[in-house]
Design a protein around this nucleic acid. Structure first.
Length: 532
DNA sequence: GCATGGGCGCTGCTTGTGAA
DNA sequence: TTCACAAGCAGCGCCCATGC
């Protein structure tokens, strides 16, 4: 019910409104009346009505003055002005004050009820908007850690304009302002192969150790980009000090993590850069340095200065187009493998890059291209070339260009054979596209067979049939598998409640999520989280 | 308060069939 | 080969209850 308070100096008008409307048949209750503004004010303060109906011309305090005071002290009260003055000045003043309705006398019960209904709708809408805003605010607060990581990831990639960076940092309580920045990428690896061996626990323990170091230094912003990869942004006012701080910090991380856990920690350090945009530049350098860790060793702390000489020779290095291998795998013939590899080796001779380090690097690139290609065809490179699972030690055995040529030829032939066995599967591209769509949208609870079928331009029933045939499982089974896998990751790597994880992986009902999780894994989310 | 389980009903998915 | 249609069934969300 909405409380209505009436102010009018004419008794007849007051009684007319009070008695002519059958208040009990409406959503309104007549909560009080007064002959002028001054008399009305204390009553309004006490009764706290939802709607105030007031005449304009009254002794002591008129309707506009009263409206002004009420708007100031009780902004939620909606005001309906009754006036016998059809003058623009009054209406304009009423609008300036924020009066909701303006009615000209004489007013019938029907007119007033219509106005009251309009005001009621306004109150309901405002209430709904307030509730929605509160809900959104609450959700934002709950998901703040996720937003923080997402925002910082985008900052690294240069996707956020500087003005937005500062605004977002303020709202996320991140102190970003500094003269210089250095980005470090920390990569954690465990010797164990799967989660059940306690890999997660080891990685989480290592992260906790890194956290304890970071928490002692206010000049560091740290976040997790993905499981096992931590980004550290170091701030500093002085070029020399910030570089020293970055190396010293990296050593502290490495010492603590490798002494207290079985994790291997590799650290890539970008150059010191000025301005907020410099964070992206420093990150790009650190990211590039990551590639060199395959050459220099995974356990190393590598900075931009450590590899500058090698980066300089890259202009020659790029003469060998890395995409060639991938393109050859897509279109080449088995009979052409020999000549393709010969051409590759000729290029190597031409640019005089015969050191084992570069040969190892090139062979790795061949394997990476092959691996990418096989995966796109739905296969696994380890099945075709078992030594890939121990690539580093395998590559270390390549000691000449001849050996490199021999192994490259063998690798390409195996992958081409595999490719030729797959060409018969004509739905591969549709299934692949569908799976990619599912992986990008599984968190959306509205994803459905129909939406995916529409995305790949196939009718739902036909899509359902070919998906089951080609993927070996039906659409729902696949979607559930993707969701449960993500949920397992979130359970182990975040402190989100299981209900929040349910929403994050696309289930609107935490209970149903729990049921599905148990069905898929044999244990409940809670039991899974507490497992070590 | 949160996680989980049981039950119920609606919705959407799967699958078989037939037509274009 | 692709699609539409229909029947049956599983998925999903909601409500209520229980245990921690």
């Amino acid at each position: 019910m909405y409380k209505v308070f009436l102010v009018d100096d004419e008794v007849i008008v007051r009684h007319g409104i009070r008695d002519c409307i059958k208040w009990e048949q409406t959503d309104f209750v007549f909560s009080g009346e007064a002959p002028d503004g001054e008399f009305a004010l204390p009553l309004i303060m006490e009764i706290k009505p939802d709607i105030l109906i007031t005449d304009i011309k009254m002794p002591f305090m008129d309707g506009l003055e009263l409206s002004q005071v009420v708007r100031k002290n009780m902004p939620w009260v909606k005001i309906i002005i009754l006036s016998g003055h059809d003058e623009f000045g009054y209406a304009r003043e009423a609008m300036r004050i924020g009066v909701t309705e303006y009615l000209l006398k004489p007013v019938t019960a029907q007119d007033l009820l219509e106005s009251l209904e309009k005001v009621k709708d306004l109150i309901i809408n405002e209430k709904r908007e307030r509730e929605n805003a509160e809900k959104i605010r609450k959700q934002l607060a709950e998901n703040a850690p996720l937003f923080r990581d997402k925002f910082l990831s985008e900052l690294l990639l240069g996707m956020v304009p500087p003005v937005e960076v500062i605004d977002n940092c303020e709202s996320l309580d991140i102190n970003i302002i500094s003269k210089f920045y250095i980005v470090e990428i920390l990569e954690l690896e465990t010797p164990k192969k799967n989660a059940s061996d306690g890999e997660y626990t080891e990685v989480l323990q290592a992260e906790a150790l890194i956290d304890s170091i970071v928490s002692k230094n206010s000049e560091i912003i740290k976040f997790r980009r993905m499981l096992g990869e931590i980004i550290v942004i170091i701030k500093g006012d002085n070029l020399q000090n910030i570089e020293e701080a970055a190396y010293s910090l990296a050593q502290s991380f490495k010492y603590e993590v490798e002494r207290k856990t079985s994790c291997i920690l590799g650290i890539s350090i970008g150059g010191a850069r000025e301005r907020i945009q410099g964070i992206t530049q420093s990150f790009k350098e650190a990211d590039e340095i990551k590639n060199y860790r395959y050459i220099y060793g995974k356990r190393k702390i590598l900075g931009i200065n450590d590899i500058k000489s090698d980066m300089g020779s890259k202009k020659d290095f790029i003469k060998i187009d890395m995409n060639n291998t991938y393109e050859f795998l897509k279109c080449g013939l088995k009979s052409d493998v020999g000549s393709f590899v010969d051409k590759f080796i000729d290029n190597l001779n031409e640019i005089e890059m015969k050191s084992p380090m570069y040969i190892h690097y090139l062979f790795m690139d061949v394997v990476i291209s092959a691996s990418r290609f096989v995966e796109e065809l739905g296969g696994e490179i380890e099945t075709l070339l078992p030594w890939v699972s121990n690539l580093e030690s395998f590559v270390a055995g390549i000691d000449s260009i001849e050996k490199f040529g021999e192994l490259t030829e063998y690798t390409l032939k195996i992958v081409l054979e595999f490719r030729d066995t797959r060409v018969e599967r004509k739905y591969d591209s549709i299934i692949k596209k569908a799976k990619e769509y599912i992986h990008s949208n599984f968190a959306n609870s509205n994803i459905s067979l129909i939406s995916v079928a529409s995305y790949v331009n196939v009718s739902p029933s036909h899509f359902s049939t070919i998906f089951s045939q080609e993927a070996g499982e039906n659409f729902i089974e696949y979607l559930t598998k993707v969701r449960v896998k993500k949920a397992m990751e979130l359970l182990k790597t975040t402190s989100l409640k299981s209900s929040e994880i349910a929403y994050n992986v696309g289930y609107n009902d935490p209970h149903y999520f729990c049921y599905i999780f148990k069905k898929a894994t044999g244990i409940t989310p809670k039991e899974y989280r507490s497992e070590t």
